[in-house]
Design a protein around this nucleic acid. Structure first.
Length: 348
DNA sequence: ATGCATGAGGA
DNA sequence: CCTCATGCATA
């Protein structure tokens, strides 16, 4: 198993040079990040009395059950499936010609701390369905409402990928790098503004639907564009792009690609349509752990007081909630990522 | 549309 | 171990 795709060979790819990217469109994201919670700092601050905090958080979480509205979902543990996949993006062995790195962590300026009233803070968060610090408050699913605009295969090029459904990571890494290094000016302009991304995302969705293509179709069709370093993307990513639930950087990186596809797709629509083809492969599916509501509430409570628990703390939490440590760790990672998504970004 | 997961790359 | 970009599986 786990055959190594060429994408994974990325690390040993001959072209490992890292050209110094220019600050094409950037500074905005720096500003955005500036408002994010400060990493390790809080950890130390609370390291001393985190015990009590944890207890507090847990207690609150427990009591909170009554305040929570009913959840129509089953508090199951884990599911398993054997359903067959429909769209197999497959691999696109291409790599980015310029594996320039991203992640320019420079959160200067840390924000407030919940130390001014933990109980109050927690209660506040929980009673209000958690503000930015806990979970996605505002509905992102506020998109129009044509969930199923099926039909597809009208991609510019051959929509079907290869007959080999390795569900491995597609490693596109269309990273957009940004530099905060703009001379001490007062006008942080010239970069991609969230405003434009927003409008583009909206237009994109509409035109995509007009073409009668699904998000999944767009994803797999991208590979056919043969753009260096760009393979296919999943429905998830396309969806997130349209709903702006990606990091600012990610949005900026994907925009030109999706734009190129749109162009090509609309052009191709006039002339022809390649023969639609469908294939499928049956692979062992990954399993998705489902954290029950009560546990999730506890995690949110913990997260409110300590977004970055230490390994030990994670272990402790995991044990209390009877979850695997790794599940808890990943949960925290994912929560942190959510905070950074465009929709909740302070750049707005 | 989203929750949980994987992995590269970076300290 | 984290951050980030992405994806599979699911509601």
């Amino acid at each position: 198993m786990m055959s190594m795709n060429s994408k994974q060979a990325f690390s040993m790819h001959p072209i490992l040079h890292e050209p110094k990217y220019t600050s094409l469109h950037s500074s905005t994201e720096a500003i955005r990040r500036a408002c994010l919670p400060n990493p390790q700092l809080q950890g130390n601050i609370f390291a001393g009395f985190d015990e009590s905090l944890l207890s507090r958080a847990e207690a609150l979480a427990a009591v909170d059950i009554v305040t929570q509205k009913s959840h129509p979902f089953k508090p199951d543990a884990t599911y398993h499936t054997m359903s067959s996949v429909a769209c197999t993006p497959t691999s696109s062995s291409v790599h980015l010609p310029h594996p320039s790195v991203l992640t320019s962590h420079h959160h200067h300026h840390h924000h407030h701390q919940p130390s001014h009233g933990l109980e109050g803070d927690l209660l506040d968060h929980m009673n209000h369905g958690l503000s930015l610090g806990g979970m996605g408050g505002p509905e992102m699913g506020s998109t129009p409402s044509h969930p199923h605009s099926h039909m597809a295969a009208m991609n510019p090029m051959s929509p079907h990928a290869h007959p080999h459904p390795h569900h491995h990571q597609t490693m596109n890494m269309v990273h957009a790098h940004s530099l905060t290094t703009h001379a001490g000016l007062g006008g942080p302009e010239g970069d991609a503004d969230p405003r434009e991304l927003e409008s583009f995302a909206e237009r994109f969705k509409q035109r995509r639907i007009k073409l009668g293509v699904t998000q999944a179709d767009v994803g797999s069709a991208l590979a056919n564009l043969k753009i260096p370093g760009v393979g296919c993307l999943s429905q998830s990513t396309i969806c997130r792009f349209e709903s702006l639930t990606l990091s600012h950087n990610n949005m900026i990186a994907l925009k030109p690609i999706l734009e190129a596809w749109l162009d090509e797709a609309e052009r191709a629509q006039r002339e022809k349509m390649t023969k639609p083809e469908l294939f499928n492969g049956g692979d062992r599916k990954r399993k998705r752990t489902s954290i029950a509501a009560p546990e999730k509430r506890s995690l949110e409570a913990y997260f409110a007081v300590q977004p970055r628990p230490s390994s030990e703390k994670i272990a402790a939490i995991a044990e209390k909630l009877d979850l695997k440590k790794n599940v808890v760790r990943v949960w925290f990672c994912n929560q942190r990522q959510k905070q950074k998504r465009m929709k909740f970004s302070a750049t707005h």
